[in-house]
Each structure stands twice: as structure tokens, then as C-alpha cells.
């Protein structure tokens, strides 16, 4: 490869460091799928219009199809393969399974990564377009169904599993909240750091 048009980079994915040389044109999505064999992250449109490629970049959700791999060096990437705690599913994954929050499964990885981030974003006090009053003095609005719908709208699902997805996200958020109150505090710092 032309050394001026390609780059030797080091990618940190799901806690593991990978050294690879990529064509500068290679997106993070293609680097994951074609170079690292992490095909859980899906390519639905390759244009940022469907959300199937959603991953977490430094803990924040992002469309990996619009993120160049070369520009990702130094950042922490979490894909759907890195969401579970070993064999133990993440509460979001478990809720998608239990509530049938998917059908064909192709948007599911993106939905799950997005949902994990949505719960953190809300816990950090981020408003959304569904928030009636965004002023800080209005206080945080609860993560109700309308908030979940709006916040999850960057992830299209053609099978029409939205109704179950909303239930699954609400369930996972409740699990997180219960864990937080058991631990006696909020852990909203992750997304605002």
C-alpha cells in the first residue's frame, strides 16, 4: 500500500489492542468487519442513515461507518461483542432477548450499543428532543417511553420491533437504576467525562 495513503495504526477494541495497517479510506466499520473479523457491527446503509453500525467510542455511541479507522487511533472502541460481561449478558442484551426486541437481528447490534449509551446519557442529565423543558432548572425528565423513542430514533428497524425495543430499554434502564440505588450513588460520570 502507498505509505502516504495508508497508515499503521493501533486500535483498542473491547479492551484489546490491535496493530494494523489500513488504507486511509477504511472506515472503522470496515476495519472491524474486514480486518478484525468483528462482524457484529453491521453495515446497513454505510451513510449514517440507519444506525446499524453504532459502536461506543470512548463510551459514547457513534456511527462507525462515518468514522475513519485512521482517525480512531488513541480512542477506546466498544462493539456489541464487548458489551457482555464474559458469559453474562449485559442487562440491555438480556432485555432484548426476553422482550423479543428484534426480529431479523441485523439492526440489533446497533440498537443494543445505542441503548447502552442512551441509558448513560440520560443518567448524565442530557436532555433530548422529547424533553419538554431543556433548561437546567427544570430538572431531569424521567426516561419514559417518549424519551426512549426519541433517543433511540437513530437506529432504524425495518422489521418493526420498536415497540419491544422500547420495552427492553425501559427494562434495562430500570435494572441499572436498581443497581445504582443498591450501590448508593449515580455513575453518570462516564458519558460526561
Amino acid at each position: 500500500m502507498d505509505p502516504t495513503k495508508s497508515s499503521a495504526i493501533s486500535l483498542r477494541v473491547n479492551g484489546e489492542r490491535h496493530s494494523l495497517t489500513v488504507d486511509n479510506r477504511t472506515t472503522l466499520l470496515d476495519a472491524l468487519r474486514e480486518h478484525l473479523d468483528l462482524t457484529g457491527t453491521k453495515k446497513g446503509c454505510d451513510q449514517g442513515q440507519c444506525g446499524a453500525c453504532t459502536v461506543l467510542l470512548d463510551g459514547r455511541r457513534a456511527n462507525s461507518c462515518l468514522q475513519l479507522a485512521v482517525a480512531t487511533e488513541g480512542r477506546e472502541v466498544t462493539t456489541v461483542e464487548g458489551i457482555a460481561d464474559g458469559e453474562r449478558l449485559h442487562p440491555v442484551q438480556q432485555a432484548f432477548l426476553d422482550f423479543d426486541g428484534y426480529q431479523c437481528g441485523y439492526c440489533t447490534s446497533g440498537q443494543i450499543c445505542s441503548a447502552v449509551a442512551v441509558i448513560e446519557e440520560h443518567a448524565a442529565g442530557w436532555p433530548s428532543a422529547a424533553t419538554a423543558d431543556v433548561r437546567p432548572e427544570a430538572g431531569p425528565s424521567p426516561l419514559d417511553d417518549d424519551e426512549i423513542r426519541e433517543r433511540m430514533s437513530g437506529n432504524l428497524c425495518r422489521c418493526g420491533a420498536y415497540v419491544s425495543i422500547v420495552r427492553a430499554v425501559a427494562e434495562a434502564a430500570a435494572v441499572r437504576e436498581a443497581a445504582d440505588s443498591a450501590a448508593g450513588g449515580s455513575r453518570g460520570e462516564r458519558v460526561t467525562a
Binding site: 446519557e121 433530548s128 424533553t131
Partner: peptide, 23 residues
């Protein structure tokens, strides 16, 4: 921004998607 220019927050939140806004 939310206190002094709430329309700016609302405008930004009306655009794109959560993941695109992060980028």
C-alpha cells in the same frame, strides 16, 4: 446553553441522531 439559549439546545437536539450528534 440550556439556561441562556434553550432554543439552541432544542435546535441541536432536533438534528440528526444521538450517535451523529456525538460525532
Amino acid at each position: 446553553v440550556r439556561r441562556r439559549y434553550p432554543a439552541l439546545t432544542e435546535a441541536v437536539l432536533a438534528g440528526a441522531s444521538g450517535q451523529l450528534r456525538n460525532m
